[in-house]
């Protein structure tokens, strides 16, 4: 059943995907409202799906890969809703909806999830690790989205073509603030999540090789994240340079994620 609910949620997010493609050419109040409602409905079904999974398996099984995708999508939607409520803009949806749609699609169509074979005492640690990392990912995705919007808005202001398509994007500084705040918010989660992960791996599998692709990519992502924060904090980097860095961190995150799916620690 939970997959069914997830697919309903997927259909709702598809409306958002439609919005993302239409919003680039035109935008209006009416569309915004429909998209928001679809997103809220989608989140409700999504929540039902996640809860049912937990109730059915009798445990918080974030460790199954499909559940993580689903949970990540849900978290991103929560952060997005927060932005909509605080800044009254749906523009980040242009980036958020495609990502959320893709994640939900993967979660709802793949094979039945297989559980990470760690029915060990470390379940609490595992859950903490994954939950923290997911929160970090969600913030990173939003920040990445914000830097893309920043570039769009900056280009429209520079080219003195402020009417039309871009007239509905939020102000440059507002976009910047959304991006920076989500970075700030996500960093502690990411850091703690990585610490939890390392501890977990060390206690389960003994000493872990730093050059293991998963660990290496995670550390790389964390490092880029740190650089991103540092340059923004210290030199006020934003716009193009910040967007490149954010893309770097995002890419590393995606690769780490992929490594996670393809490769597992062998005990």
């Amino acid at each position: 059943m939970s997959v069914l609910w997830l697919r309903v949620a997927l259909a709702c997010y598809a409306v958002g995907l439609l919005y993302a493609s239409v919003a680039l050419t035109r935008s209006n109040e009416w569309l915004n409202r429909i998209v928001l409602h679809a997103a809220y409905v989608g989140m409700v079904f999504h929540f039902v799906s996640l809860t049912e999974e937990i109730v059915l398996t009798g445990k918080i099984s974030l460790a199954s890969i499909h559940n993580t995708e689903s949970a990540l999508a849900f978290l991103i939607m929560i952060v997005f809703t927060g932005v909509v409520l605080v800044y009254r803009t749906t523009s980040p949806g242009i980036v958020v909806f495609p990502v959320v749609f893709l994640l939900t699609l993967l979660a709802s169509t793949g094979d039945r999830p297989f559980l990470l074979a760690s029915e060990s005492v470390h379940r609490g640690w595992l859950f903490t690790h994954i939950a923290l990392i997911l929160a970090g990912y969600a913030a990173l995705v939003l920040s990445f989205g914000a830097s893309l919007l920043y570039l769009l808005q900056e280009r429209s202001l520079k080219s003195k073509n402020v009417g039309g398509i871009f007239s509905r994007l939020p102000a440059l500084e507002v976009i910047d603030e959304i991006g920076f705040r989500s970075l700030l918010l996500g960093f502690p989660f990411m850091t703690l999540g990585l610490i939890a992960g390392t501890t977990l791996a060390e206690t389960t599998f003994g000493r872990v090789n730093v050059f293991d692709p998963k660990i290496f990519l995670s550390l790389l992502m964390w490092a880029v994240y740190l650089v991103l924060l540092y340059t923004r904090w210290n030199a006020g980097w934003r716009g193009r340079r910040a967007a490149y860095l954010a893309s770097g961190a995002f890419l590393a995150a995606v690769l780490a994620w992929a490594a996670n799916t393809l490769h597992r620690f062998v005990s």
Binding site: Q153, L157, V162, G163, S167, P170, A171, L172, E173, V174
Partner: peptide, 20 residues
């Protein structure tokens, strides 16, 4: 939604950059 005079266009643009 759109401004008329030069001065208000300037304000509008400033708002596009700084928000408030």
């Amino acid at each position: 939604s759109s401004a008329v005079s030069i001065a208000s266009v300037a304000v509008e643009l400033a708002k596009k950059i700084f928000g408030s």
